[in-house]
Write a protein that binds this DNA or RNA. Structure first.
Lengths: 226, 226
DNA sequence: ACAAAAGTGTTCCGGCTACACCCATGA
DNA sequence: TCATGGGTGTAGCCGGAACACTTTTGT
């Protein structure tokens, strides 16, 4: 370890912001307005400010892009991407974060609202920079975590039905699940979900109980992806 | 996104190099010789060079510290640590990597050999900077990955017995496993290990078959950590 | 012969799968 | 009354836990 010789480089965070809308897993993308990669979709992101923690940067970007006061939003680091040529403008190392947000009726209200939108992850196609790779890694992280954590509730509003929760799993994994077995698994696992007391008929049919998040942090044994 | 305004900061990689020696999980630590944290144990690491990929930096550091030509060594990113005050000398963001190495008869031969050593992870105590946190995260990553991947073989020489492999699991997890069930699980899982043909009596008792790594990348269903 | 470790067979049991079945509402 | 989704019961199966037992070496 030599001295504090700083190589000139930029440090940024990029965000994979996922939600479930219309039964499909979607990601928030920005249409680039300036070179490089003009006109292509990219992940939202920005540079880390002096004396700003990495997660603080990510939360700030999240708030800027979605209008969500990012307090209660699930946010976790994915990985850091630092290939020397990943940005043609110069050396930029990016710490990628995964954010899971509920399907709120809040429109995308960033500084560049007209050019941002929710895109089906299956339709995302080629992204700017190495953002395709980052998106893939983020989606895979989300898929894996649903197996052994109660993370799916991060996609749900504060109160939700079991079948809404199942819809999250089905959208993220892209596979149908047995409603009856899913119901049993989720309600019998201690502290996975907690009954809210009320019921709703918003999904049609017999009224469904409403639940909110439980206190569990892991799922033993895990949910099985078929 | 403004221009390429680079905040002055250092970008480094730190390494959690784990091995299994004498049936215990050990980590390679460096005794610091210069401030800050003089005399305390720290993870090996160093700054990223211009135009150097992050993993290249990590492999270079690994080779410098262990003398291992790091080609065949398992190396994966853990996470990036960027709290503004994590280094009292200035802003240094560190990308941490996890390396798993076999128990080779190679002495630790770094630039600072006298002050480096293999330390039981349970005895590591307080480390310099936020390295304690990084070590914890790295060890937890290794523990988790043994469950659902054939990663334990990364701790083994090219040819190993089933009980040596079990020894890895027991050392990393800190719990004993049933030798009979472990043997069945490992040998019945397709492509987890492949018979090498030879046998050895180096563990005493009846000769044991030697195996090498299989081609499997995941373990379904996973190994259970009791 | 005996100790020690390798490897096999077998029983028990918990959890998942698949599906039959009943419940409570809106139209 | 019917369609729709909510929720329960249950039989069968798969895989892990536990452990008795046989095999093959060194001393």
């Amino acid at each position: 370890m030599v001295g504090m010789d700083f190589v000139p480089l930029g440090l940024a965070t990029d965000l994979v912001i996922l939600t479930v809308r219309d039964g499909r897993l979607q990601v928030l993308l920005i249409r680039r307005g300036i070179p490089p990669y003009v006109g292509q979709w990219a992940l939202p992101g920005g540079f880390v400010r002096p004396d700003e923690d990495l997660e603080t940067t990510a939360r700030r970007e999240l708030a800027e892009e979605t209008g969500l006061s990012a307090e209660r939003i699930h946010l976790e680091q994915i990985a850091t991407y630092g290939a020397p040529d990943r940005d043609p403008r110069g050396r930029v190392v990016s710490v990628a974060y995964l954010a899971l947000v509920p399907d709120l009726p809040v429109p995308v209200a960033g500084s560049d609202a007209a050019s941002a939108g929710w895109i089906d992850v299956r339709d995302a196609g080629e992204l700017a920079f190495d953002h395709g790779r980052i998106l893939t890694d983020g989606v895979e992280r989300a898929r894996a975590k649903l197996e052994y954590s109660p993370l799916a509730t991060a996609f749900c509003p504060p109160e939700f039905t079991i079948s809404e929760l199942r819809g999250v799993y089905e959208a993220v994994w892209g596979t149908p699940l047995d409603p009856r077995n899913f119901h049993r698994k989720v309600t019998k696992t201690p502290d996975f979900v907690a009954p809210a007391g009320a019921t709703t008929t918003r999904d049609g049919g017999r009224p469904a109980q409403l639940f909110h998040r439980g206190t569990a942090t892991t799922l033993h044994p895990p949910m099985t992806r078929t």
